[in-house]
Simulated assay, not measured.
Amino acid sequence: MKGIMRKTLLAALSLTGMSHARAETASTSVMQPMPSYIDGVMPVMDQGVWVHGLLNQLEGRVASQDSSFRWDGEAWIGGDYNRLWLRSEGTLTKGRMSDGDQELLYSRSISTYFDLQGGVRVDLDSGPTRTWGAFGIQGLALYQFEVQATAYVSDRGRFAGRLEGSYDIPITNRLILQPQVELNLYSKQDKVRGSGAGLSEIDTGLRLRYEVWRKFAPYIAVTYDGALQQARRFAHERDDSAGNLRLTFGIRSWF
């Protein structure tokens, strides 16, 4: 009799333990769901949609006579492969806006570091408005050089090109030196806008920024913007400055 009671007690304890184990397993499966696999491969989370904006230049360029205010910024919405871009830049000098370039672009990733882009550019400032179709490439070249090359065709059958490049040189974790250059060229002259055939304009600078926090960085710089070749002659005919080397103060920010 005692043997039968002992066996019954052990069986009851065993069933209780199994019940607790199943409850714990069920609780674990609810709290920590296992990832779903397709054909034995874990899916890559690359279909999200994000928004990013960068105010690369918001600066005052100081000179004895031709001080100016300049901005250069961009924003995009999309994922890892497809994005919609909005770009804007321009310069305000003595109440007159120049170099006003507004672009709406679609980009498609073609490699880990480069995107193809295409869209529309509108020169919108104090001068005559010009509209262009745009096609280009942008990304990170060897040693983390940020480069962008864009070709344009206007509604008047003219062609243009722009080459931009910059490179961040960390001095400390927060202090960063950035050389930058932008070159513009045109197939034909556009005298009313001050653009000459061939290499027409240059905008370059050496900026030293301090990242107070990662999204906000004031900077000091030496910048030069000027007309080249035929465009330089147009500037002299209008009694405008053909080039300015200036001390510059600005802010770089992103979200």
Rank of each mutant, 00 (worst) to 15 (best):
D125G: 03
E24R: 13
Q229A: 09
F114I: 02
P170G: 06
A12L: 15
K188L: 10
Q144E: 08
Q178S: 05
A160K: 02
N173M: 00
W76P: 12
L206C: 07
L177I: 11
G40P: 00
L116I: 06
L142T: 13
G79K: 09
G73V: 08
Q65G: 07
G78M: 00
M34P: 05
W71C: 07
S36C: 02
Y143M: 12
L54M: 01
A75R: 06
A217L: 15
L142C: 06
L86Q: 01
P128D: 13
I110P: 05
H236L: 08
E74K: 10
R162P: 13
S241G: 09
P179G: 14
A21L: 14
T91D: 11
S126M: 14
L92M: 10
S200A: 15
L105K: 03
D66F: 07
R174Y: 11
Y210E: 14
Q117E: 10
R6A: 14
L104D: 06
Y186P: 15
R121M: 05
R246C: 09
S14W: 12
L54S: 04
F159C: 04
Q47K: 01
S195V: 08
D123L: 15
S36P: 04
N56K: 14
A160N: 01
F234T: 09
R108Q: 05
G139S: 09
T91H: 04
A221D: 07
T93Q: 05
D240S: 04
Y224K: 11
G139F: 15
H236M: 12
R214K: 13
R130I: 06
Y106P: 11
Y113C: 05
I38D: 05
G78H: 12
Y219F: 10
S64A: 11
Q32E: 11
R70H: 10
Q47I: 00
G161V: 04
Q229V: 00
G48L: 03
V222N: 03
T129F: 07
Q230N: 15
V122S: 09
D101I: 08
V49G: 05
Y219K: 09
R252Q: 13
N56I: 07
Y81E: 12
D155Y: 01
T223Y: 12
R83P: 03
L10I: 11
L124G: 02
R22L: 13
V147W: 01
T129C: 12
A21S: 10
L116R: 10
R207Y: 12
V44T: 15
T28K: 14
T131E: 07
G165K: 07
I176T: 10
Y81A: 09
R232P: 09
G78P: 01
A134D: 01
Y37W: 10
